[in-house]
Write a protein that binds this DNA or RNA. Structure first.
Lengths: 228, 228
DNA sequence: CGGGGAGTTGAACGCAATCAAATTTAGTGG
DNA sequence: CCACTAAATTTGATTGCGTTCAACTCCCCG
């Protein structure tokens, strides 16, 4: 699919970071924007690269990950349409990407010039506050993850993830948007361990596993498991 | 020691968040400020409490931690003089503290009214940008920690911590500022495990343990361990 | 002296990682 | 539509690291 290089104001304004911008500031942001199309598996940037842009996903899914010195890969996050990533590098003195990014699926992302965006932030305290809100929420999620890694075992991490990804209403089914091994890495588990945990939860009649569809049979019991 | 209730402009301006503020804004921040003295072990707030203030340490050390449902305690961070904490709650819609805080030593902290500070941020984009920088750096550190928990074993976590806390120049000695069990919790280890790791590094002639003083005998070899 | 917390040491256990192999699924070209 | 290959996932067997439980030592402060 060819990249649509034109970017409508309306498309950007759907995102909080651009919603408050005065017309001339929005135009400036657009002027420094670049559209990038990515095939599945294609890299966008690598950890340590000089970070001159932050990104907004237009289509597809992008995997953010780190490679440890020993070669182990840890998936930090998977971002989808409408989500931004790597905004934080704009504000750091060492402006290097702290993660690598590559497409999981056929994707299209918008890259915004960090320097330019930083300049226009001076004229938009509202956008600054939205950014502060976004980073604060992310910080909290990271802290949740650190706690999970520190005190929860494999089953508990999977259960917590299920509960967090359960639709607020409607059928209690979680559809995996990524391969199981990617989910395993996000939860800091080996694929084998995730498989065993899901199997075990299935045996206990708590969930029902059908490929990428995880049906939660008993949400209450699932919640009870987290209060151990 | 009684709390000094007067707060000099100069004291605040040492901190980046206040350095850029126009005089009237600084005065406003001060007006909403409260001084709190804490004895060792005294709680400042608990996770889940309504967060109406963010804090600056004037003296002493404050432990930020979480208690998991199963009762396990995880120390997230220890903050010292000149450092702020819990700023992020200002920008979140659910304004509850995501951690608990208590004094490790005899301490004194300044608590700033979040609502008031949020208002004055509208008039100071520079301060907004400093906050964004601070949160971004913190976000990166959290990501480092997540990677460490995911891919490093106990020894590697201790070694990495040692390297990060080694003075840039001078004697290669790390003085523990907190009890070993607090450090263990920060590294998500049991106290017994930390003890064994330090003992083992001592046996290998990489470090020398003398109470709270950890002398690094061979920084190069320490660094080599991280490249495993 | 004596109590108590912090830290260390020892022994045994258990969870998840690792290694290995089978099996299912997905993707490709005929 | 099917055959074929590669990748994803599952299952089984084994190992090892860090936890857990328990006892002991060392200080510091009363």
């Amino acid at each position: 699919m060819p990249a649509a290089t034109h970017i409508a104001d309306e498309e950007l304004q759907l995102h909080p970071f651009f919603a408050d911008l005065a017309p001339e500031l929005l135009a400036s942001a657009k002027a420094g924007c670049r559209v990038v199309a990515l095939a599945p598996g294609a890299p966008l940037f690598a950890m340590g690269d000089r970070a001159e842009r932050f990104w907004l996903v237009r289509r597809g899914r992008i995997k953010l990950f780190r490679i440890a010195p020993n070669g182990a890969e840890k998936v930090v996050e998977v971002v989808g349409p409408g989500q931004t990533f790597a905004e934080a590098v704009m504000f750091m003195t060492v402006r290097d990407y702290p993660v690598s990014a590559e497409a999981l699926t056929d994707s299209e992302v918008l890259g915004f010039d960090a320097e330019r965006f930083l300049t226009l932030l001076h004229g938009s305290p509202d956008t600054c506050l939205r950014l502060l809100g976004a980073l604060s929420m992310r910080l909290r999620r990271r802290m949740d993850e650190i706690e999970a890694l520190s005190v929860q075992n494999a089953t508990l991490r999977v259960v917590t993830w299920l509960l967090q990804n359960l639709p607020r209403e409607g059928a209690a089914v979680v559809h995996l948007e990524v391969p199981k091994k990617v989910l395993a890495s996000q939860l800091s588990l080996q694929p084998e361990t995730l498989s065993r945990v899901l199997h075990s939860l299935g045996e206990q009649q708590v969930i029902e596993v059908d490929g990428a569809a995880l049906r939660v049979l008993d949400p209450a019991r699932l919640r009870a498991l987290t209060l151990g």
